[in-house]
Design a protein around this nucleic acid. Structure first.
Length: 257
DNA sequence: ATGGTAGCCTTGCTA
């Protein structure tokens, strides 16, 4: 069995204790991190290594940043999403681990709509579509794991009306996300959970966590070869309830060997 | 209620 997880930690330095605790209890084989918010040299590599994990990092000062933490050393690492050599933002890291091709994704937020930020989000999603198709054509088991900043349907939002104009929910955003599903990727969580109002993110503001007012924007998208092996997927709400929590919580799945 | 919170390391930006 291979356990794969994704977690937007909103600064690895602020969340190191939480991450070490979760590695200890959840014991994932692969954990994709987003918003590490530091350069690779400032990542707490020693602490992660001491916990029995390898780490690959695509860092950036203050913003963004992704990493792959894994029991087995990642191979054939690809830093950055192909398709725009001028893109400086650290949002994509791909590697082979435990026989799986893993992509750690921090998709742009895109707000406010109507600005270059939203244009960047849609362009980034188009590049992701191209890369996802290339991965699909390898016919290997692939997992696109990350904070997609996309709530796929209104069932994934606590107040769909209030959020309908937001970059995470716009029709263009959802249509571009569905392209990944239509080409053959499967939302691992939705294989096992049909119920609405299951969230992976709750804003820090306005008591959203206490009211369970969140969004499901962190996803594990499985290629057909990976989906054929998935036996369970879920969201672990426990870390979100802790002191000094990230505003996101881990999403995970297990694939049969 | 045009706010509210959190992390970065600015005196605002991003989320």
């Amino acid at each position: 069995m291979v356990k794969v997880a994704t977690w937007n930690v909103n600064s690895i330095k602020a969340r190191l204790g939480h991450v070490l605790a979760w590695l200890e209890t959840a014991k994932p084989d692969i954990l994709c991190l987003q918003e590490i918010k530091c350069q690779a040299a400032d990542f707490p590599t020693l602490e992660i290594t001491a916990a029995g994990y390898h780490v690959e990092i695509l860092g950036q000062r203050a913003y963004n940043g992704v990493a792959i933490v894994s029991r087995e050393k990642p191979r054939d690492v690809l830093c950055g999403l192909p398709g725009d050599g001028g893109d400086e933002q650290a949002r994509y890291l791909e590697a082979t681990v435990a026989g799986l091709r893993i992509a750690a994704i921090y998709l742009p937020n895109g707000n406010p709509v109507g600005t270059d930020k939203y244009e960047y989000k849609l362009a980034w999603m188009a590049r992701l579509e191209t890369q996802a198709r290339a991965l699909l054509e390898t016919e290997r088991p692939c997992v696109l794991a990350g904070d997609f900043n996309v709530a796929p349907t209104d069932d994934d939002v606590y107040d769909p009306v209030a959020w309908q104009g937001d970059a995470l929910c716009r029709p263009e955003t959802r249509a571009q996300f569905r392209r990944l599903l239509h080409m053959g990727y499967v939302d691992a969580f939705r294989i096992f959970h049909a119920e609405p109002h299951r969230y992976s993110f709750w804003d820090y503001q306005a008591g959203r966590w206490l009211r369970d007012e969140g969004l499901r924007i962190d996803h594990l998208l499985l290629s057909p070869q990976a989906a054929d092996r998935v036996v369970i997927a879920d969201i672990d709400r426990e870390p979100r309830g802790r002191d000094k929590a990230s505003d996101h919580t881990p999403v995970w799945c297990e694939l049969a060997a």
